[in-house]
C-alpha cells in the first residue's frame, strides 16, 4: 500500500482513538422526548441483533474513554478490512481500466 493510504489510515485511527472520547454526548433530551411523543417504548428491547460492542463502548473496560477509543480503533480496522475484502471479491485482478 502506498504512503498516502497509510497516512489516511493513521489519521482515521487517530480520530477514532483520540477524538472519540471527547465527542459531544447525545442529548439527554432523547429519552424524555421519545416519551413525550409516546414512542420511546417502540425502540426499547427491539434490537434484532446483539452487537458485540454496543454504543461504541468496548465491554470489559472500566475507563469509559478508553472503552470508546478501543471500540473506535476496532471499528476503523473492521471497516477497512470489511470493504477491502468485499471489493477484492467483486473486482477482478489487474483489470486494465485505470
Amino acid at each position: 500500500m502506498s504512503r498516502k493510504i497509510w497516512l489516511g489510515l493513521v489519521i482515521s485511527l487517530l480520530v477514532a482513538a483520540l477524538l472519540s472520547p471527547f465527542a459531544s454526548a447525545f442529548p439527554d433530551g432523547l429519552e424524555r422526548v421519545a416519551e413525550d411523543y409516546g414512542f420511546l417504548q417502540t425502540a426499547t428491547g427491539q434490537e434484532v441483533v446483539n452487537s458485540p460492542i454496543p454504543d461504541y463502548v468496548m465491554p470489559g473496560i472500566q475507563n469509559e474513554g478508553l472503552a470508546t477509543a478501543v471500540a473506535g480503533v476496532l471499528g476503523v480496522v473492521i471497516t477497512f478490512a470489511g470493504i477491502t475484502l468485499l471489493l477484492k471479491l467483486l473486482v477482478k485482478r489487474n483489470k486494465s481500466s485505470a
Binding site: M1, S2, I5, G8, L9, I11, S12, L13, V15, A16, L19, S20, A23, S24, A25, F26, Y56, T68, G72, G75, V76, V77, T79, F80, A81, G82, I83, T84, L87, K88, L90, V91, K92, R93, N94, K95, S96, S97, A98
Partner: peptide, 28 residues
C-alpha cells in the same frame, strides 16, 4: 463499481470507509 473499479483502487475506498467510520463517531 465492478465495471469501473480497478483492484489497485481498492485501498482508497477502504481508507475512505475507515475515515467516515471514525468521523461519524465524533459528535459536535
Amino acid at each position: 463499481t465492478k465495471q469501473e473499479l480497478n483492484d489497485r483502487q481498492i485501498p482508497k475506498l477502504g481508507v475512505m470507509a475507515a475515515f467516515i467510520f471514525a468521523a461519524q463517531m465524533i459528535n459536535f
